[in-house]
Amino acid sequence: MPGIGVLNDDAPRPIKVVLNWGRRYSLWVFNFGLACCAIEFIAASMARHDFIRLGVIPFAPGPRQADLMVVSGTVSDKMAAAIRRLYDQMPEPKYVISFGSCANSGGPYWDSYCVTKGVDTLIPVDVYVPGCPPRPEALLQGIIRLQEKIASETLSNKSIRAKYAGSRRAGAGEVTRPLLTQPQATQSK
């Protein structure tokens, strides 16, 4: 049953302020570098535009150790299933920054046959950073905007249950309603 710890719902405001402060200044980013925007992301993590000084530690080893996912680059339809599954494998609370115009809405490839038109068709996005590619300073501004958003958020039982209500629990490759016609068993195991 999705939810939040018993104390967090009734916590007094100062404790929520402290928890939000801890959460927003210790983001560990799982970089989903797909295309040219990944180079700008790497530039933002290096010495000149360093985002470690904002508390964002780069290059989490996997989705299970991350709480921020930056989708940077063009999302092809083949990659969409992997993105959905990796987002599902991240533990709560998790945030997504959509970086670059391809991840925002398909970008210059809005008319292509195999580009997902925006990563927000797959996963809930918190901050959109426009640009083709955005400057590293734009990513820094996006991270600061996300930190302001986390500062003003309230995690509650209701919000988490709404996020995972009903069919939203389905991941990549899962269906929660019965198939219309059963697939034929063409080969024996």
Binding site: P2, G3, I4, G5, V6, L7, N8, A11, L19, G62, P63, R64, A81, A82, I83, R85, L86, D88, Q89, M90, P91, E92, P93, L155, I160, K163, Y164, R169, A170, G171, A172, G173, E174
Partner: peptide
């Protein structure tokens, strides 16, 4: 502290084995 404060949402997908987003 984690038990009383942390959010949790153990969906089936979250508990699958990690292999770079594929089966």
């Amino acid at each position: 502290v984690r038990l009383i404060l942390a959010p949790r949402a153990p969906t089936a997908m979250k508990l699958t084995t990690y292999e770079c987003g594929v089966d």
